[in-house]
Write a protein that binds this DNA or RNA. Structure first.
Length: 592
RNA sequence: GGCACCGUAGUUCAAUGGAUAGAAUAGAAGUUUCCUAAACUUUAGAUGCAGGUUCGAUUCCUGCCGGAGCCA
């Protein structure tokens, strides 16, 4: 039984025995490091019913715990806080029980039986991925791993927005100005090539808008009536009608984009179990509208459009099908969600990794699904994340202030290479190993930098400073891991026989307690979909280990038993660091 | 205009309603006979403003100010 559990149980018994209080919820917290103790109980909540002062309750509960549990060594009371110290033997035996489990913190073996679908990435096919997508991808991928570590089966899925006016703009511009340019002929990555023509369209279209305005049209009229815009809309109609020429062009250009995306995804180290294309799903949902209409969940308005009234839920009226019978975004989202639960009968939860500018959209979506009578609607979750901002403000693709994902990865790689070379400690590495190391470190830096921030919050990214390799960063963890491995290689000892009769000093106990917390952190990160918890955890552990490492000269330690214990502790720390980083999608090097 | 979100050291990030609001970075001062100094130690520095709820509020409620967002 975990320390928390038996302590809570014991406190509840004590409350019963001492004050005849039953069924009181008891929660423990970790004792802050400036106080003596391992766990802390706040006694304020009991003062009224126990009719005693906080200090007195602390004294009485503490004494009860010491008397009834041999693992409880001592206690002290500071105001309303009861600090409980567990015995050295408890922590040591705990440590010995898990030190050789490579999967510590990762519970892949004992499945929860729950199947979760997690959608992330979901790019448009008219331009390459940028920094915003990077946050989406890293977040989605990491949450998938964390859910897996909690024993769930996770289906990682990507829905590609491959149709619509945006891709027609790129296609049209390519037709007009492209001169048959291809990724092969230009050497451009496919997604960048298509993105280039999206920008070309915008430039040419702007000129046409200005021309129309100078002819006396208002800005709004002009924006809708440019020849290019009209032609793009014509192209979209032709695409929907199945016009062979348009569809062929569409297939070719999307093919280029997919090849480009594949490269970026691989570089980011993310992957998917399934991919949906909106060209296949955009008509889904119309049938759902009919059904909802029959069930009187929806109603027809005078203008012929179909809507739902959500004002009672604090939302607005929402149109779910236009008067001309065409879909709006939410129509296909309804259809897609329902389709997925049909496709995977055991599916229990659906998670959407989408930016927080769509918070309202998902509230509406989930509420409609609920009204349509789908029980699983309450298991749908919008994994909402904040925008990534630059020092000069928000990224705008049209103003060229986006940070391109491929360029960013390359810059990171170059920085890692330059920094490593400057430090000059990589003799004995082959060129191949060096490339792999630069990749590992640069990705680790980028991923950690993004994932350490609470997903819900907007974050600031400064490309000039790019990534710091010092301080609260991925490379700090990677470096510490590599150093431990190096120490262990030097030690070259037999770990089978590890001492059990070691007195833990305070820092060693801190480390053991920190390792002890790992499972709980993974659980909480899974419940809150927040890799940031894991990131901050692994940083705490790493910092602690570094203090430990600098305080004691492990390899020079003369007491054999102590030396073995400390090496074992190091080994376990390396394992935990590696496992935690793994949950963030970050690999740690054996040496660097 | 309606809806929901965000304001914490110079800067970037933490803090299930709990103790003296933590880190990192930039600043100041130190630490290499050693296993990796990409490290460690010390130091200075913050809850937008005004109320309320209570044993206790960065956290919950109300108003204001400031920032970004969604819906028209």
């Amino acid at each position: 039984m975990s320390a928390e559990n038996f302590l809570i149980e014991s406190v509840q018994n004590a409350l019963q025995d001492l004050y005849t209080l039953t069924g009181k919820p008891v929660s423990l917290q970790k004792t802050r490091k400036e106080f003596e103790g391992d766990f802390t109980l706040v006694t304020f909540p009991f003062i009224k019913e126990a009719k005693r002062s906080p200090e007195q309750i602390g004294q009485e509960l503490g004494q009860f715990l010491v008397d009834h549990n041999e693992q409880v060594l001592a206690f002290n009371v500071v105001k309303g806080f009861l600090n409980i110290s567990l015995s050295n033997a408890f922590w040591l035996s705990y440590f010995n029980s898990l030190k050789d489990q490579p999967g510590i913190g990762l519970k892949k073996e004992n499945s929860s039986g729950k199947t979760v679908m997690l959608e992330y990435s979901s790019p448009n096919t008219n331009k390459p991925l940028h920094l915003g997508h990077v946050r989406n991808n890293l977040l989605g991928y990491s949450v998938a791993r964390i859910l897996q570590a909690n024993g769930h089966r996770v289906i990682k899925t990507n829905i590609v927005n491959d149709r619509g006016i945006h891709i027609c703009k790129s296609m049209l511009a390519w037709q007009k100005f492209g001169n048959g340019e291809t990724p092969q002929s230009s050497g451009l990555k496919g997604d960048h090539l298509v993105g280039k023509y999206y920008v070309e369209f915008d430039k040419a279209n702007k000129r046409q808008i200005e021309a129309l305005i100078s002819e006396g049209k208002t800005k709004e009229e002009a924006e809708k009536q440019t020849p290019l815009m009209l032609e793009a809309q014509e192209m979209l109609r032709n695409w929907e009608a199945g016009d062979r020429e348009v569809v062929e062009l569409w297939k070719m250009m999307n093919g280029w984009v997919y090849q480009g995306f594949a490269v970026t995804y691989k570089a980011l180290g993310v992957e998917f179990d399934s991919t949906y294309y909106e060209s296949n799903t955009y008509l889904l949902g119309k049938k759902v509208i009919e059904e909802g209409l029959a069930k009187h969940v929806f109603y027809k308005k005078e203008n012929g459009s179909i809507a739902i009234d959500l004002t009672k839920e604090g939302l607005d009226e929402k149109v779910v099908l236009r008067s001309d019978g065409t879909s709006v975004y939410i129509t296909q989202d309804l259809g897609t969600a329902i389709e997925r639960f049909k496709e995977f009968p055991g599916l229990e939860q659906l998670i959407y990794t989408v930016g927080n500018e769509q918070d309202y959209h998902f509230k509406v979506l989930f509420k409609i699904l609920e009204k349509l009578g789908y029980d699983w609607a309450k298991e749908c979750y919008h994994l909402s994340y904040g925008m990534v901002e630059l020092p000069e403000g928000k990224m705008k693709s049209r103003e060229g202030t986006v940070v391109d994902a491929d360029e960013l990865l390359q810059e990171m790689f170059d920085t890692a290479e330059a920094t490593t070379k400057e430090l000059g400690k990589v003799e004995g590495f082959t060129e191949l190993e060096l490339q792999e190391l630069y990749r590992m470190v640069s990705l680790g830096a980028l991923k950690y930098f993004i994932l350490k921030v609470d997903p819900k919050k907007k974050m600031l990214f400064d490309p000039k400073e790019s990534i710091d390799f010092n301080g609260h960063t991925g490379p700090f963890m990677q470096y510490t891991h590599a150093r431990i491995k190096s120490v262990l290689r030097k030690a070259d000892m037999n770990f089978a026989a590890v001492a059990t009769a070691v007195e833990l000093n305070s820092i060693e106990k801190e480390l053991v307690k920190c390792i002890y917390d790992f499972d709980a952190v993974v659980k909480e990160a899974g419940d809150t979909y927040s890799p940031a918890l894991v990131a901050n955890y692994v940083y705490e552990l790493t910092k602690l280990y570094n203090r430990f490492y600098h305080e004691f000269n492990i390899l020079k330690e003369e007491d054999e038993a102590l030396k073995k214990f400390r090496l074992q502790l190091s080994k376990t720390c390396a394992q935990v660091i590696s496992n935690a980083m793994n949950l963030l999608g970050i690999t740690v090097p054996e040496r660097m």
